[in-house]
Simulated scan of single mutants.
Amino acid sequence: MTRIFLLLTIICLLPGCTALHKSHPTAVYDFGIQTPPSSQPSAQPAQLRKHSLLVADTTAPVWLDSKAIHYRLLYHNPTQSYTYANNRWIATPAALFTQQLRNRIAASTQEQVIKDNSIATADHVLHTELEEFSQVFDTATDSRIVVGLRASLIERNSRKLLAQKDFNITAKTPSADAAGAVSALGAASNQLLNELVNWLAATLPHD
Rank of each mutant, 00 (worst) to 15 (best):
N157G: 08
A68L: 12
K115G: 13
D177S: 15
H76N: 15
T121C: 06
T58N: 04
A181K: 02
L204G: 09
V146L: 04
F97K: 00
L101N: 00
Q135T: 01
H51E: 06
C17E: 04
T18M: 04
A120F: 14
R72H: 06
N77Y: 09
P41M: 05
Q44L: 12
T141F: 14
V182N: 02
L101A: 02
Y84I: 10
D166C: 02
K50T: 15
K67E: 06
T83V: 11
D57I: 01
G180M: 04
N103A: 02
T79D: 14
Q34A: 06
I10P: 11
H24E: 15
Q110N: 14
P15V: 05
N103D: 04
K115R: 11
S175Y: 12
Q40N: 08
W199S: 07
Q47H: 15
N198E: 05
K22D: 10
I69N: 02
D177P: 09
H51P: 12
Y84A: 07
Q40Y: 08
S81H: 11
T121K: 13
S38T: 10
L193W: 00
L8V: 11
N77M: 13
A176C: 10
V125W: 09
T58W: 01
K165F: 02
N190H: 03
S152G: 05
A122S: 09
H206F: 11
N103T: 03
T109F: 01
P45I: 10
A91R: 03
L153D: 06
A56Q: 05
D207I: 07
S39W: 10
P61Y: 14
W199Y: 04
C17W: 01
P15I: 05
Y84W: 13
L20F: 15
V136A: 05
T203Y: 02
A178W: 00
H21L: 06
Y75A: 08
Q112P: 03
T173D: 00
F137G: 03
F133H: 01
H76C: 06
I114M: 10
A68M: 10
D177M: 12
Q135W: 00
T18F: 12
R102E: 02
V197H: 00
R104Y: 13
T109W: 01
K165D: 01
A85V: 14
L7D: 07
V136Y: 15
I10K: 08
S118A: 13
P36V: 01
N198K: 07
D142P: 08
H76L: 12
A176I: 10
I105Y: 03
A19H: 12
A94M: 07
I169K: 00
A188H: 00
T203S: 15
A179M: 12
T109I: 12
P78G: 09
H206M: 12
F5N: 06
T173Y: 06
N86F: 13
A91Q: 07
K160M: 10
